[in-house]
Design a protein around this nucleic acid. Structure first.
Lengths: 144, 144
DNA sequence: ATAATATTGAGAATGATTCTCAATATTATT
DNA sequence: AATAATATTGAGAATCATTCTCAATATTAT
């Protein structure tokens, strides 16, 4: 994405165009899997303050431009919501700490939806969200 | 459960019998939903040090006597694994912060298992665990 | 170009969890 | 039951991710 498009993205969501915001969006665009705050900051040559990074991420989250969630190691992970981003889930590798996006097939997704409706009724609770996460170990033994 | 049974549980898992360990197991037995460290400590009249509580929970976890996981507010929640405990999932209420255990029906559980096998193959990753968590809002408006 | 406003960076503050180690309790031995 | 050997505890310091504060700086509107 060109800078102009990032500018438009920011402006159309009520943000002023600042270097840190543009940088962070670029980094998220170039990442093909969810990424942590520390990694984001590393990719900016340390030019963005940690507090600014957190603040910007929080703002982008409020504007629904990104997804954010906690890794099993309890760090915030972040991914940009692209035009074609649909509801999906994550696979955490406990050896190499990478996170993969996974899709689940439509049939299962529907099953899950109907389960959710059932639980919602049974417990008289409005269910607003759900997560389905997988944990595994890849064959990269270098981390053991 | 009587004290004797708790003593046996501890001994048969290689633990010596100490007051803090017995207390914590009792508290977990009397809790019908996952409970946080702070709540555990509160129920002991503040007699157990925070560091001891964390240590004991970690030990019980190693011995597979309890399940532990993070709440959406990023606190450790803990529940005892009873004889009849089977694989289940959790529903977090974002208003009242309670956690409910939920069962999912066998058919869906099987679907999930087969999805997991598929993803495992596709990504050449051994999948060791998964979580399926629901988030909702109950009708208790006192927290808003 | 200037003024008004918003954002940033640096570091202090916070909150959960982990670590350290001397004091104390438990277990094994007599 | 008393003692010695070993394990556990409590208190507080340390750590780690995240949030807060506020003066310095950048952006936007005029």
């Amino acid at each position: 994405m060109k800078n102009n498009n990032i500018n438009n993205l920011l402006k159309s969501n009520g943000f002023s165009v600042t270097k840190p915001r543009v940088q962070i969006i670029k980094i998220l665009q170039n990442s093909n899997s969810p990424i942590g705050i520390d990694a984001i900051i590393n990719k900016t040559d340390g030019k963005i303050a940690i507090s600014s990074a957190y603040r910007i991420i929080a703002d982008l989250l409020d504007a629904d431009l990104i997804n954010a969630f906690q890794s099993p190691e309890n760090k915030l992970l972040v991914e940009l919501i692209q035009n074609n981003t649909k509801h999906h889930h994550h696979l955490y590798c406990q050896s190499c700490k990478k996170v993969l996006d996974i899709d689940i097939d439509e049939k299962l997704e529907k099953n899950i939806d109907s389960l959710i409706r059932k639980i919602s009724k049974q417990n008289n609770i409005e269910i607003t969200n759900h997560s389905f996460e997988l944990f595994g170990k890849c064959n990269d033994k270098s981390h053991e």
